[in-house]
Nucleic acid binder design. Structure first.
Length: 447
RNA sequence: GACCCUAUCGUCCAGUGGUUAGGACACUCCCCUUUCACGGGAGUAACACGGGUUCGAAUCCCGUUAGGGUCACCA
């Protein structure tokens, strides 16, 4: 435990939250929670054509959905605000003045403020990548010229990312900078800025990037790239979080399905890979199904509710749990829930044409339904065990296979050829509704 | 082009000098079974290449190749 530890997630409000960004946030959050430190959210809206509330909201929504709560930041305040770069103008000016006074910056011919790069060899110990040594005197650009001095303020007065990023981290007392590997090469410049400002640099940890499964760079449009697609795709936040944390990190044993508390307890930056991870939505889906299967029915009901409401499927409160439980083991995405249980909600459910053709259309199917209905009319209690026994007894008596009753019955009471266990489905339906549905089916498909 | 990072099954993750190279997803097959799933069992499948070091390298070193990243008055 080290309450002095302060880490931050500093996204730019681009209107969407990328998986890579979410995982960076997650690793920062895990690091903070593991050590009992602080997790800070800072919005890097420098320059960005003003501040779009909608774009920022996407970040809040994604983080909150994943359960990554921040100790300081928008809506949380804190002693080192404001937490929007667009509101930190005077702070940047103060640090820039310090650099000017020290003779470390100069105005170029266009009026922009530039930081004179030291161009000395430099080394640092990255918490993930190990020791990084760079000879800054050799850095050159594409034209083979020496790398230009870094601009920290545009001619129009706008502040540049590298500068404000460092200033904010200093000002907010950030102790550990955990960010994407795309910043590894920028770190030398950042350290030079820290040194020019007379501040001890924080510890850095650069985590690998997330790529598409084929290894290509993940862009906004790629499957699974946007966190919003998980909110909209029927994913369970704890499952997604579990999958994400295993992209680049491993507890070093065979544990995969781990509750959040265990991940927090075991998370260690030293165990983070340096290799870029290829994103595999199929495995993420598997995690989702596993979480759905294993979660308590109460949680499942809570997560299903919005999807049922959105689809307009209204189940009677008294039956809700029984109905949901019927298909809980089979669901991969919550989006499937409404279609799987919709037929419970109305006696006027539609019949799937292929199901009708495959079963009801077969010779004798309607007769079997009549026989089954007659048999079930006297069944008591009307529960799965009894119904199964009675159906099999009937089949034996008539010397036909149970399947001859089962398949037509399934379609008769649900309109579908796939669905829950027939007997459990009948039990939940109850004798009255079950028999009424069979009667309706016989009526509709009578030749 | 310069500099930096990386390289184990298709994918994720183990394995840090001696293993039949392990687990998971996906895929194939079998079992279970009233459908669809779940579950159980089995199987296919990897150390990028070339040099070293060593009695012995997936593991250490060098090179090659490949992939990624940074070199903005973007963040």
């Amino acid at each position: 435990m080290n309450p002095e530890i302060r880490v931050r997630f500093a996204p730019s409000p681009t209107g969407y939250l990328h998986v890579g960004g979410a995982r960076t946030a997650l690793f920062n959050w895990l690091f903070a929670r593991h050590h009992g430190g602080k997790f800070i959210l800072r919005i890097e809206d420098t320059d960005r054509a003003r501040h779009h509330e909608d774009a920022v909201q996407v970040i809040y929504d994604g983080l909150r959905w994943l359960g990554l709560d921040w100790d300081e930041g928008p809506h949380a305040d804190g002693p080192h605000g404001p937490y929007f770069q667009s509101k930190r103008e005077t702070i940047y000016q103060r640090y820039a003045d310090q650099l000017i006074a020290a003779g470390r910056v100069y105005a170029d011919e266009n009026g922009a403020l530039r930081f004179r790069l030291p161009r000395q060899p430099l080394a640092f110990d990255d918490m993930v990548c190990g020791r990084i040594e760079v000879d800054r005197s050799k850095s050159q650009n594409r034209e083979g010229e020496l790398e230009a001095d870094m601009t920290i303020r545009r001619a129009d007065g706008g502040w540049i990312f590298h500068f404000v990023n460092v200033v904010d981290d200093i000002d907010m007392r950030i102790t550990h900078v955990i960010r994407g590997e795309d910043h590894l090469s920028n770190t030398a410049k950042h350290i030079e800025l820290y040194q020019a400002l007379g501040v001890e640099p924080p510890r850095f940890g650069h985590i690998p990037l997330i790529l598409n499964k084929d290894g290509s760079k993940m862009s906004k449009r790629d499957t699974g790239a946007s966190i919003t697609s998980y909110l909209d795709g029927g994913y369970v936040p704890e499952a997604v979080l579990n999958y994400f944390c295993l992209l680049g990190w491993s507890p070093k044993d065979d544990r995969e399905i781990m509750p959040r508390e265990e991940i927090v307890a075991r998370f260690d930056l030293a165990n983070v890979n340096r290799k870029g991870a290829h994103f595999d939505l199929a495995k993420c889906d598997w995690f989702n199904a596993q979480y759905l299967q294993q979660m308590p029915l109460e949680r499942y009901r809570e997560l299903s509710a919005p999807w049922l409401a959105k689809a307009g499927v209204a189940l009677p409160a008294g039956q809700l749990d029984a109905v949901l439980a019927l298909e809980k083991m089979k669901v991969t995405h919550l989006t499937e829930v409404p279609e799987r249980v919709a037929f419970f909600a109305t006696e006027d459910f539609p019949y799937e044409p292929v199901a009708v053709e495959k079963t009801l259309g077969k010779p004798g199917a309607l007769d079997r339904l009549a026989q089954l209905a007659e048999c079930y009319a006297g069944v008591e209690p009307f529960d799965a065990v009894t119904l199964e026994a009675k159906l099999k007894e009937l089949a034996t008596t008539l010397a036909v296979k149970p399947a001859e009753f089962i398949h037509p019955a399934r379609v008769a009471v649900s309109g579908r050829s796939v669905g829950p266990s027939l007997y459990h489905m009948l039990e939940v339906l109850g004798k009255e509704r079950a028999l009424a549905r069979i009667a309706r089916t016989r009526r509709e498909f009578a030749a």
